[in-house]
Design a protein around this nucleic acid. Structure first.
Lengths: 179, 179
DNA sequence: CTTTACCCGTCTACGGCTTCACAGTTTATA
DNA sequence: TATAAACTGTGAAGCCGTAGACGGGTAAAG
């Protein structure tokens, strides 16, 4: 049976040797064989597993989740995949907000009006709400929408989010708060 | 002049005490005063600086970049902001691809066709290309588009990216490769 | 048999924190 | 006023996923 050394296996997938060493250490992917000298030899099966790992990693699933998914591969728990998909939605929204902030700041810079002037109370409330992690983002929008829908709208616009998108974000936030 | 203790300052912005300790240690934000017992006291000015830091952090700018931006606050180097904005664009694209992968996998799961069947050569070539970091993403699409535009298109569709979006991504990839 | 070109395990570093351990200080209650 | 609770300080270590360097052993080509 054909086997691959660690570096060759790594190169197959554009990974570094250290990554495979790490995967071995944490028990995510241990090569099925060793040479008498202790060299790791990856079989075709190992490579196949690694391929799956790469695909799953590609979606930024955590190593733990990947382990779980690969363990129960016959019943490929779509739960974790769905969870990650939802997270991605949140991340997209978070990125849009970041984009908005930066655009606003750049506009300020361009027109020489100095640093961005975002209403302090907005920010304080915003940052206080959840620390702005990805789950927090969701809760924050929902909370903001619930407490002050108009301020929420204005806030989104102030970030440079177009009217249309702002309405979509708000609707989404309302769904979150009632589900 | 009014001052705040470290925990109160942290709470103002939804941060933890350790974060402020960390910011002090790395010289990002050191409180202007100390009590005789050595307690950090944050003045209004410090709080103002922290507010800016939070806004900038909110865009995931690195601490180093934030330091630079705050250092030259009269000429607020839009360079770093633009750099980050570009990165965000790449991150959005990366997320879309992840989304596509996950959707495809879920579709596979739902129709009980087992694990996702993405052509191996595609993935290998893809992963080999750049390791799929955010800059790699850009290079990879450009490379794929250059070498096999049709396969690129098919690949995007296979990820569940809608036709329209696929065309946009490809155009963008072509621009990258020639700039 | 020498020269490459690999491989080994172990260690360190990165960013942006968090958590811990332990000691001193301030504030609230009894 | 005594004591307990809630703060504060410092320093060190840990987290993730990966990259890279080190010194030394192995394999294969010339």
């Amino acid at each position: 049976m054909k086997t691959y050394t660690i570096s060759k296996t790594a190169r197959l997938f554009g990974l570094s040797r250290s990554t495979l060493l790490y995967y071995d250490r944490i028990g995510l992917l241990s090569p099925s064989r060793r040479t008498p000298a202790g060299y790791r030899m990856y079989t075709e099966e190992d490579v196949k597993r690694l391929e799956r790992i790469c695909i799953l990693r590609q979606t930024s699933l955590s190593i733990e989740d990947i382990k779980t998914i690969l363990r129960s591969e016959d019943a490929p728990s779509s739960e974790l995949l769905e969870k990650r998909l939802k997270e991605i939605g949140e991340e997209m929204l978070a990125l849009k907000v970041k984009q908005g902030i930066l655009s606003t700041m750049l506009k300020g810079v361009a027109s020489r009006e100095g640093p961005p002037k975002v209403n302090k109370e907005m920010w304080v409330g915003m940052l206080r709400a959840a620390g702005m992690d990805n789950q927090g983002m969701e809760r924050w929008h929902a909370e903001f929408e619930r407490r002050a829908p108009e301020a929420h709208h204005e806030f989104l616009l102030s970030l440079g989010v177009p009217e249309e998108e702002a309405l979509m974000i708000r609707e989404w936030a309302r769904q979150v708060s009632f589900s």
